[in-house]
Computed example of a mutant assay.
Amino acid sequence: MEERDVTTRSSTVEEWTQGLSESTGSPGGGAGTGVMLAVAASLASMVAGYTEPGADHQQTVDDLRDRARRLRSEALHLADEDSTASRAFGAAFRLEPGAERDNAIREASVDAAHASAVLGARAVQAIDDLAWLAAHGNKALIADVVVAFGALRAAVAGARTNVSFDLGSLRSTGASLEEIREQQPELWASVERLTGALERIDALTEQIDSRAAPTDSI
């Protein structure tokens, strides 16, 4: 299968993961981040569907499930967008040294960082819904909530690392980290926000781990 044919929409899981296993970079870790977010959203939707709240919470559950379904679709779209950004990123670094290469790297790095930042922002927005399910969802599916948190953590961690790495790649054009921070303040700040999100996910997971894995508490 040709590289351009490997997408989350047109490929089976077997085909997509085979594409991920190849040394092409497209799909790569950023696209994998999007797929992990889709897994988290899918599990949130499933748990919400099994949750039978009182009448006062029915609308909350319905809205949560709708958001999760939209996020699953959007995350897969973002995964494919990252694959496109990865191809441009790799192509830029293969150019001959010079002004054209520097400009290509600068554009590709910022585009790739932006794609990862958008994905990370969407992942952060899902934390509240998983926290709600942990507290009010079907108790028999608490293990699924923990798995969803694990997938969400992978998505946030991947987005954070990719934004940081892509920004750092701008140093190959002669820019210092201080200059990069001044030139890309929003992308730079997104790394800190994603770091905070990781800490929150870890705290939430720790709170419910004993319910999901009771044998570990003995």
Rank of each mutant, 00 (worst) to 15 (best):
L141T: 06
A126P: 00
A99I: 11
G32E: 03
A151I: 03
E2Y: 08
S83F: 02
A99Q: 12
L76P: 05
S26R: 14
M1W: 03
E96H: 07
A157P: 03
Q184Y: 07
M46F: 15
R171Q: 13
T84V: 14
L187T: 12
E14I: 04
R4E: 12
V156P: 06
Q59L: 14
V61Q: 08
L141N: 10
F93T: 10
A92V: 05
D82W: 01
F165Y: 04
V191A: 11
R70N: 13
V118A: 03
D62M: 06
G150P: 07
T173N: 04
H114Y: 09
T60Q: 12
L43K: 05
A143D: 09
A31W: 03
T195Y: 00
A155W: 01
S176L: 02
A88Q: 15
D111T: 14
S190R: 08
L130G: 09
I208G: 02
L37K: 04
R65D: 10
A112Y: 02
G196L: 07
T12A: 12
G150R: 03
A91L: 13
F165T: 15
I208H: 14
P53T: 11
R211W: 12
L20I: 02
T7F: 00
V61H: 01
M1H: 13
L198A: 05
L187R: 09
D111K: 14
I208L: 10
E15K: 11
A155N: 07
S73E: 15
T84L: 11
D166H: 15
R181A: 15
G168M: 05
V163T: 09
E15S: 13
H77L: 08
D166I: 00
A48L: 06
E3D: 11
R160Y: 02
S42K: 06
V118T: 15
A154R: 10
W132D: 10
A157H: 03
L95D: 02
G174C: 05
R153C: 01
A91K: 14
D209N: 06
N162W: 07
G90R: 10
E192V: 06
T7D: 06
L130I: 11
H57Y: 05
D80N: 04
N138M: 03
R122M: 05
I127S: 08
